[in-house]
């Protein structure tokens, strides 16, 4: 998610549209990114390495905060072909052991 101090013109445009569509109660909209990352294994340092990449690659700490969350495979779009087709040939175990990454403001990971 963009940090609070970073202008989010996209969020503002969506906020205005929501107000226009009959919801004047909307005070603020912030738009970030949501990524799902399907990984193999459950090694002890896996989560720490993922945090490293969240910091170095997946988010830019100058303008964004991120949060890393572990999700059950059935909650992941990887496992739900209706909303998103799973990659062909992906071993079932990989999907069962998915780790999701969610960026969210203010929660810190």
């Amino acid at each position: 998610m963009p940090k609070a101090a970073v202008l989010d013109p996209q969020g503002n445009a969506v906020r205005d549209a929501m107000r226009h569509l009959g919801m004047p109660e909307v005070r603020r909209v912030r738009i970030g990114k949501y990524m799902e990352i399907d990984v193999d294994g459950k090694n002890g340092d896996l989560e720490a390495r993922l945090h490293g990449l969240c910091h170095d690659l997946l988010s830019n700490p100058v303008i964004e905060d991120y949060e890393l969350q572990r999700l059950e495979a059935e909650d992941s779009t990887f496992a739900n072909p209706r909303s998103h087709s799973a990659p062909a040939g992906q071993p079932a175990t990989a999907r069962q052991r998915g780790v999701g990454s969610r960026k969210q403001k203010g929660r810190g990971a």
């Binding site: 963009p2 970073v6 202008l7 013109p9 996209q10 445009a13 830019n60 100058v62 303008i63």
Partner: peptide, 11 residues
């Protein structure tokens, strides 16, 4: 370099 370049204010 410090800082970052983000979406133009005008979108």
């Amino acid at each position: 370099l410090p800082g970052a370049l983000v979406r133009n204010r005008s979108l």
